[in-house]
Amino acid sequence: MLCTAGSESPTTLPKETQRVVGDARDTLDKHIDVRVSRAEHEAVRRRAHSLGITPSAWFRAVLRDALDSRRDEVRSITAQASQPRQSPLVAEAVGQLRRVGVNLNQALRRGSAVDGDLLLEVKASVDSLRRELGDTTR
């Protein structure tokens, strides 16, 4: 947790304002004000945008890396950003297919399917389509 100089002990925020930070749950309730030039501000904004994160998230990653040499958050964020992203429509289709697959698995385990061989064939087709759409979950 980050605290500004002279600040009191952290207050507890409602659960919805807490975020998972690093490996532990921290409440992001303290601010650090830093003055930068327009060029620096624009560079931070562009860099964060290119990584698909907010300027605050990018700054926190840089700050944590600087405070603890064992961390490597900036590299991790950069690696994640270099992976191609699904379009929202494809992501929604993958989610729907995943739910269909879960339902098929449940029906197969319960034995409530009329034709087990047909169910297995449909399940294999759904899994194949999910992989083609880029779903990496199992």
Rank of each mutant, 00 (worst) to 15 (best):
66 A>N: 04
86 Q>T: 09
17 T>F: 15
42 E>K: 15
55 P>N: 10
44 V>G: 01
18 Q>Y: 11
76 S>W: 07
70 R>M: 02
37 S>R: 09
77 I>T: 02
59 F>H: 03
88 P>T: 06
51 L>E: 07
84 P>V: 10
79 A>E: 12
70 R>N: 13
29 D>A: 15
34 V>K: 13
13 L>D: 12
51 L>W: 04
39 A>L: 12
40 E>R: 09
9 S>R: 14
56 S>T: 12
68 D>F: 02
49 H>A: 15
91 A>R: 14
54 T>W: 05
66 A>E: 12
40 E>H: 08
27 T>E: 15
66 A>Y: 07
34 V>S: 10
63 L>W: 09
13 L>T: 11
12 T>F: 09
50 S>C: 02
84 P>F: 02
38 R>Y: 13
88 P>D: 10
35 R>G: 05
81 A>I: 01
31 H>I: 13
46 R>G: 03
63 L>R: 10
77 I>A: 03
78 T>G: 00
82 S>Y: 00
85 R>V: 12
9 S>F: 08
40 E>K: 06
69 S>C: 00
82 S>W: 00
48 A>T: 04
21 V>F: 05
84 P>E: 11
50 S>N: 07
86 Q>H: 12
79 A>W: 02
83 Q>H: 08
87 S>D: 14
48 A>L: 04
57 A>S: 14
69 S>N: 00
85 R>W: 02
39 A>N: 10
23 D>N: 09
42 E>F: 10
53 I>M: 05
83 Q>R: 13
7 S>N: 10
14 P>W: 08
20 V>Y: 03
44 V>Q: 02
33 D>N: 15
21 V>G: 00
74 V>E: 02
89 L>G: 06
76 S>F: 07
92 E>K: 12
64 R>Q: 06
10 P>R: 07
73 E>V: 08
23 D>E: 09
42 E>R: 15
43 A>V: 06
61 A>C: 12
39 A>K: 13
86 Q>W: 01
75 R>E: 03
58 W>Q: 01
69 S>P: 07
85 R>H: 11
50 S>Q: 12
16 E>F: 12
52 G>S: 10
33 D>Q: 11
38 R>E: 15
51 L>R: 02
81 A>D: 02
68 D>C: 04
42 E>G: 04
16 E>Q: 14
40 E>W: 00
82 S>M: 06
47 R>Y: 05
79 A>D: 08
23 D>Y: 01
48 A>E: 04
65 D>S: 03
69 S>D: 06
77 I>G: 00
66 A>R: 08
84 P>S: 09
22 G>M: 06
63 L>G: 09
66 A>P: 04
90 V>W: 03
34 V>D: 07
92 E>C: 04
12 T>Q: 13
50 S>K: 10
24 A>Q: 14
35 R>P: 02
57 A>I: 06
42 E>M: 12
47 R>L: 11
45 R>M: 06
35 R>Y: 14
86 Q>N: 05
16 E>R: 15
88 P>Y: 04
15 K>Q: 13
67 L>I: 06
43 A>I: 03
75 R>L: 01
50 S>L: 06
47 R>Q: 08
82 S>K: 07
74 V>P: 04
45 R>G: 01
20 V>E: 14
57 A>M: 11
79 A>Y: 05
23 D>I: 01
25 R>D: 09
71 R>W: 00
55 P>W: 09
68 D>A: 09
11 T>P: 08
65 D>K: 03
69 S>F: 01
51 L>F: 09
52 G>C: 05
35 R>V: 14
